[in-house]
Computed example of a mutant assay.
Amino acid sequence: MGGAGNVIKNLKVLGCDTNIISIVGEDDYANVINTQLEAAGVNANGILRDKSRCTTLKSRVLVANHQLIRLDREDTQPVEKATADKLIDILKKEINNYNLVLVSDYNKGLLSDYLLNQIFSICREASVKTLIDPKGNNYTKYRGCNMVKPNKKEAIQASGIQITDKDSLAAACKKIKEITGCDDVVVTMSEEGMAMYVSDELTVIPTKALSVIDVTGAGDTVLASLGVAISSGYNLFEACDFANHAAAVVVSKVGSATATIGEISHQFLAMF
Results as ranks from 00 to 15, higher is better:
177 K>H: 04
8 I>C: 02
183 D>F: 05
79 V>F: 04
133 D>I: 04
10 N>V: 09
75 D>R: 02
211 S>E: 15
5 G>W: 04
150 P>L: 09
104 S>Y: 02
27 D>Q: 10
174 K>C: 05
90 I>H: 14
233 G>F: 04
132 I>Q: 07
261 I>H: 08
125 E>P: 04
244 N>R: 06
33 I>K: 05
78 P>L: 08
133 D>R: 06
7 V>R: 01
35 T>N: 14
158 A>Q: 00
25 G>P: 00
71 L>E: 01
3 G>D: 06
15 G>E: 02
123 C>W: 00
45 N>Y: 13
256 S>H: 11
205 I>F: 13
148 V>P: 01
45 N>E: 15
18 T>S: 15
31 N>R: 15
163 I>E: 00
117 N>Q: 15
22 S>V: 02
254 V>Y: 03
44 A>T: 14
81 K>M: 14
191 E>P: 00
169 L>I: 02
256 S>K: 12
186 V>E: 01
155 A>T: 08
192 E>N: 10
95 I>E: 09
174 K>H: 11
184 D>M: 03
255 G>M: 04
3 G>H: 08
152 K>H: 12
211 S>H: 14
197 Y>K: 06
125 E>I: 11
20 I>P: 02
86 K>W: 03
14 L>G: 02
184 D>I: 06
129 K>I: 09
166 K>P: 06
164 T>H: 14
242 F>Y: 11
143 R>V: 05
88 I>Y: 06
9 K>T: 12
94 E>L: 13
238 E>M: 10
71 L>Y: 11
207 T>S: 10
87 L>N: 08
30 A>I: 02
154 E>T: 11
52 S>A: 15
37 L>D: 07
95 I>T: 13
192 E>G: 00
249 V>L: 04
220 D>K: 09
154 E>I: 01
146 N>F: 06
252 S>C: 04
242 F>W: 05
136 G>T: 07
257 A>S: 14
235 N>A: 09
91 L>S: 06
148 V>T: 08
116 L>S: 10
236 L>F: 06
178 E>Q: 14
87 L>Q: 09
128 V>W: 04
261 I>A: 09
171 A>G: 05
230 I>W: 07
145 C>S: 15
179 I>A: 00
272 F>E: 14
245 H>P: 05
7 V>C: 01
28 D>M: 11
55 T>A: 01
237 F>C: 09
251 V>M: 07
70 R>V: 07
147 M>G: 08
93 K>Q: 13
31 N>V: 13
211 S>R: 15
224 A>I: 01
102 L>Y: 11
126 A>E: 02
